[in-house]
Design a binder for these strands. Sequence first.
DNA 1: AAACTGACTGTTA
DNA 2: GTAACAGCCAGTT
Length: 115
Amino acid sequence: MPGYGEPMHDTATLNERIWLAVAAIPPGRVSTYGHVAAAAGLPRGARRVGRALGALPAGSAIPWHRVINARGELSLSGRAGQEQRRRLLAEDVQVTDDGRIVRAAWRTTLYTFDD
DNA sequence: AAACTGACTGTTA
DNA sequence: GTAACAGCCAGTT
């Protein structure tokens, strides 16, 4: 427990809030780093979302693959990016070879937390 | 302590 | 469509 005078929002706690927001993204939909950040109460925390996801323990049930950047592309590259693409395809989210959500599908798969 | 580094984003040209 | 750049924010050198 944080001692007297400790900030009640340490990094670990913020990471958990971010993870919870990510967990709220329904299967077959995707959201962006920015939207997740806002949902977690961090209006300008997009970069922090990326770091929080990178800090996920291996084998976590958090659907990290549903978080992509504001341009509708996967921000992960290399093997990690391929794995993300694989997982998205597995839930019928259309992703091109170069890691972009198919434009027509992007419209319907984006999850903004408003709905 | 300063510099560097990204799983970021919006603006401008 | 691209590219550059400025903000952004915290972990790592």
